[in-house]
Amino acid sequence: MSFALHRPTSLAAALALAARHGAAARFLAGGTDLVIQIRRGRLAPAHVIDLSAVPGLAGIAGTPEGGLRIGALTTLKAIERHPAFAGGARRALAEAARVVGGHQVRNVGTLGGNVVNASPAADTLPALLALDAEAELVGPGGTRRVPLDAFLLGPGRTDRAPEEVLTAIRLPPPPSAASASAFLKAGRRKAMEISVVCAAARLDLGADGRCVAARLALGAVAPTTLRVRAAEALLEGHVPDAGRLAAAAAAAAAATRPLDDVRASARFRRHLAGVLAGRALAACLGRMGNGEAA
């Protein structure tokens, strides 16, 4: 490792540094991915811009329209423990945050870092996709918002320009009163796992019991976190009975483009994708039945 370290104390200063060093610079949030990638030689930035002294980048707050704004530097631990995710419609995010590494990593690792790192196996990303998250970016041209599924372009690649800072993740309000989400993960161990497959789902039901909106997203089965629109389409407008859920799960498995690697074969990943997708959707329904919905 060898780099110059910068510690701007304002967003403007951070942007100026980014503009000056361009692709030679990387932003440092918690560093739990970045430092390992630098040490493994996968990244070799000449400049590291530590964002921890920039005010206002951490914290979770409600938005006027009833959504949530999660500062990019909010730690995974803060998400895990925040009441906004303790139950109800956004529970999937806490469930995902809670299974990233050990407490050591979650006390430092940030949601923004997780998003910018854009690992196809990242646990928080399917949950964020299920919750219709948007990335909020600030750059020389001002602030812009990008839906997360458009933001994630490939392994380690996002729509963020080198001179932009990811400042927050925004979650819109759930579209119906009956909404629940769930996150599930499969790995070789019960903790400290990079997911072999992970899945997040959200279901919103109308007063007639029909599905107003469905979201299903999978991790570690494609070059990016995969939102399975085909499965969502099978559910939306219908009563999500067992047959519909099974069809959606099958569609999820069919949509995967997994790899064979040291953690699992493509065939097993596809199998797990179907299993976890079905279970995540069923968990959403179960939670609504338990009166847990938002």
Binding site: L5, R7, L28, G31, T32, V35, I36, R39, V48, D50, S52, A53, K77, H103, Q104, V105, N107, V108
Partner: peptide, 14 residues
């Protein structure tokens, strides 16, 4: 709060 010192840049402790 517990953290891994091996991947925490010293600068982050400022």
């Amino acid at each position: 709060r517990v953290v891994n010192a091996c991947i925490l840049l010293a600068a982050q402790c400022q």
